[in-house]
């Protein structure tokens, strides 16, 4: 793993994608756990942060306001508390931002032919016309100012929307961003995996499966790129 200049790497990355960034998420090093394993231009880098420093992370889909709301809401779904780190340390907001900007956010693989039968019974699955991008954009309008509310009021706002499509998606994406391979931008420093004792992909458990019967086997987590030492192109980086 390489230790390198955070800002120059980000700028290089933005140039690589030839996208003019209007929005950045400003985060303090403390709020993202201080150490970051983070994929930029499809490589994993380890960035040792200084606690006093702030980072400007370029956003692919969210505005800065939206990102702050998503970060705050995800942090109420999987909070950072006495049982361990949560969505905030895992960098879930960055994960969701990338997913929304990618093919999944655009509904690239969902059947979207008309007519939409929105009133169909639930057992037919989601029948709405709105893509994840639109569900987030509309849903976030209802949470305006959310990140500046006291925690108890934040929880009350989430209870109000918890039966809806937007919350369902946000909850699912929060779990994904906490436990995905770090190459997708979440699970920073594999904090999610450490929380539950998941070691990541391993070449072999052939000996251990016979050895550990009803007692914990907790090898040090390693990400896919660390294990295979090969670049891996995540689906969210697929060309449009």
């Amino acid at each position: 793993m390489t230790q390198m200049n955070w800002t120059s790497r980000l700028v290089a990355h933005a140039r690589l994608r030839r996208v003019r960034r209007r929005h950045f998420l400003v985060m303090s090093a403390a709020s993202i756990g201080g150490v970051l394993v983070y994929s930029l231009d499809h490589k994993v880098s380890r960035l040792v942060a200084q606690p006093t420093k702030t980072f400007k992370i370029p956003l692919r889909f969210f505005t800065e306001r939206e990102a702050l709301i998503v970060a705050a809401a995800a942090s109420r779904i999987i909070p950072s508390d006495e049982s361990g780190p949560g969505a905030r340390e895992a960098g879930v907001v960055i994960y969701i931002d990338r997913q929304l900007a990618g093919p999944w956010g655009r509904d690239a693989r969902r059947y979207t032919h008309m007519p939409f039968a929105d009133s169909a019974a639930p057992e037919f699955g989601y029948q709405g016309a709105a893509s994840p991008q639109r569900i987030y954009r509309e849903g976030l309008k209802q949470l305006s100012g959310f990140d500046r509310l006291p925690l108890s009021e934040q929880d009350a706002r989430l209870v109000e929307i918890e039966q809806g499509v937007f919350f369902d998606l946000l909850r699912r994406n929060t779990i994904e961003g906490t436990f995905c391979d770090p190459l997708h931008g979440g699970n920073v420093d594999m904090v999610g995996w450490q929380l539950i004792g998941f070691p990541g992909p391993r070449m072999s458990n052939a000996a251990e499966i016979d050895k550990y019967r009803g007692e914990e086997f907790r090898p040090k987590p390693a990400s896919l790129t660390q294990m295979t030492r090969k670049p891996h192109r995540p689906s969210e980086d697929e060309a449009t």
């Binding site: 059947y111 979207t112 689906s235």
Partner: peptide, 26 residues
Amino acid sequence: ANDMDELDYAVRFSMMQDYSQETVTL
């Protein structure tokens, strides 16, 4: 050799039929 990524394979179904092209009705 390089596919042990839960998100893309098990959650986003990268090996499965692309429903944007074809699905079934029920």
